[in-house]
Each structure stands twice: as C-alpha cells, then as structure tokens.
C-alpha cells in the first residue's frame, strides 16, 4: 500500500474557490440532515461533514486552516441538533488538525491511504466526541466500539469515492 513519507516540499498544496469552500460543507450538512428523513439509519453510520472536513484538511495541508474548517463544520453540525454546541466542534477541530498535519507528512492521494486515514480519523472523532460528552458534560452514551468500527468502515468506503469526486474542485496553488 503506497503510503509514502514525503517532505513538506514534495507534497502539493491545493486551494479551493470560495463557492466550493462554502457550498460543499453546506451541502454535506444538508444531506446529513435530509437523508435520514428517508433512510433513518443513515445518520447512525455516515458522517458526511466529517468526510468533508478530512478532505479539505488533507488537501490544504495547513493545520490552522484544517482545524478552523473542522471547527466551523462541527459547530454548524452541533447547531442542527439540540445538544450543547461544541461537542462536534471540538471533535472535528481535532480531526481537522490531525488530517492536515498528516497530509503534510504523508502522501494521501491514493485510495488505500485515504481509506485508512478516514477509518482512523472516524475512530478518533468518535473517541473525542465521547470523551467530551463523558468528561466535560457528564453525559451517558452507550457506544458500542464494534458498531463504531463498522460505521468507520462505512465512512471510509464512502469517503474514498467522495474524495475522488471532490478532487475535481481542487486548484493548484
């Protein structure tokens, strides 16, 4: 599996147009909120805003940009629910920072690397989310790790295809 270590100079850094920067996260939030009306289990297994966060963070390869993207998308996701605002924000901030930092170090342009990175960050995201709920808000959440792993696999598979579709919007710096 070609996950190669590269120097910062070797990897390409991409940027996105403003409509894509705003529109893609909004669309992800829209689909995340709307699809469960027709397919109720969708929200249980798939986290489209997380996939978008990982994609932008890995493509830009700038940790500050990545963590800010994650924070904004996560906070917006929090606002759609009824719970405290900040749980998804914190989790996606960490993921955005991690994914962009990893993007600097590793070549994450191929499908295999993307699959593994997405699976790994889904688990990190779940762990941070649960930790925030448990230790900061004292919320009880019955989370099955096996179920979480399955959801991670589903997200990784979807993410792999989604990233190739979103690659079309990349602009070289």
């Amino acid at each position: 599996m070609p996950i190669t270590y590269t120097s910062g100079e070797q990897v390409e850094v991409y940027r996105f147009s403003i409509p894509v920067t705003i529109g893609v996260p909004l669309l992800a939030l829209f689909f995340q909120a709307f699809i469960p009306v027709r397919f109720p289990r969708f929200a249980v297994y798939i986290d489209l805003p997380l996939l978008v966060t990982i994609f932008f963070a890995m493509a830009r390869r700038n940790p500050i940009s990545g963590l800010l993207t994650g924070a904004v998308i996560g906070l917006a996701q929090d606002m759609l629910g009824r719970g405290p605002i900040g749980m998804y924000g914190i989790a996606k901030t960490v993921v955005g920072y991690g994914a962009s930092s990893l993007g600097v170090k590793l070549d994450v342009e191929n499908a295999g690397a993307r699959f593994l990175v997405t699976l790994g960050f889904y688990l990190v995201h779940s762990a941070v989310y649960l930790a925030v709920g448990r230790f900061l808000l004292n919320m009880t959440q019955n989370q099955s790790w096996f179920h979480g792993f399955l959801a991670g696999l589903a997200n990784a598979m979807l993410g792999t295809f989604l990233y190739f579709a979103l690659d079309k919007f990349k602009q070289r710096t």
Partner: peptide, 9 residues
Amino acid sequence: IGTSGTPTN
C-alpha cells in the same frame, strides 16, 4: 423536512 443528522440528538 429534516433531522439533526446526528444519532445522538
């Protein structure tokens, strides 16, 4: 017309 999009809410 929509949901929270999260399994917890």
